[in-house]
Amino acid sequence: MIRHIVLVRFRPEISEDRIAAIFADLHGIKDVLPGVLAIASGRSESPEQIERGYMHGFTVDLADWDVLAAYQAHPDHRRVGAALVEAAQGGLDGILVFDLPVADPD
């Protein structure tokens, strides 16, 4: 499995309602793309408080690297990605992406 991890530093004027709408659009991808196993999104609630301005993020669990490639090419992902870049502080500079291979726990 691949865990696609995205952290976003939204511009200060972007409302929580707008962020929720972007994340809701993101969650819809699970219904249209086979191999997307789970999507989780939200605002950090870390007691460590070392987010460095990246207060929102999401993870997408994908079956394998081929599904990640299909996810990246999917028009719904491109639309959500464009909305994220538009809303992020500094555009693409306000977004961090990390793809982590996750082994089966058994």
Rank of each mutant, 00 (worst) to 15 (best):
M1Q: 11
I2M: 03
L7S: 02
V8K: 00
V8S: 03
R9P: 15
F10P: 11
R11A: 15
E13I: 07
I14T: 10
S15D: 04
E16F: 09
E16W: 06
D17I: 12
D17V: 13
I19Q: 02
A20Q: 09
I22V: 01
A24K: 08
L26I: 05
L26A: 00
L26W: 03
G28P: 07
I29L: 11
I29R: 01
K30A: 14
K30R: 14
D31L: 10
V32D: 15
L33W: 00
V36H: 00
V36I: 02
L37V: 09
L37W: 02
G42V: 06
R43F: 02
S44F: 02
S44Q: 03
S44I: 03
E45F: 13
E45T: 13
P47N: 08
E48P: 04
E51M: 06
R52N: 12
R52S: 12
G53N: 11
G53F: 11
Y54T: 06
M55G: 03
M55N: 05
M55R: 07
M55L: 06
H56Y: 15
T59K: 04
T59L: 06
V60T: 12
L62V: 00
D64A: 10
W65Q: 10
W65M: 12
W65N: 10
D66M: 14
L68S: 00
L68R: 00
L68H: 03
A69T: 04
Y71N: 02
Y71K: 02
A73T: 06
R79I: 12
R79V: 15
G81C: 04
G81E: 00
V85I: 15
V85D: 13
V85S: 15
V85T: 15
E86K: 11
A87G: 03
A88H: 02
A88Q: 01
A88F: 02
Q89W: 07
Q89L: 09
D93G: 15
D93K: 15
I95S: 03
V97Y: 08
V97R: 11
F98N: 06
F98K: 05
L100A: 14
L100E: 13
L100R: 14
L100N: 13
P101T: 12
P101N: 13
A103W: 07
D106L: 06
D106N: 10
D106T: 08
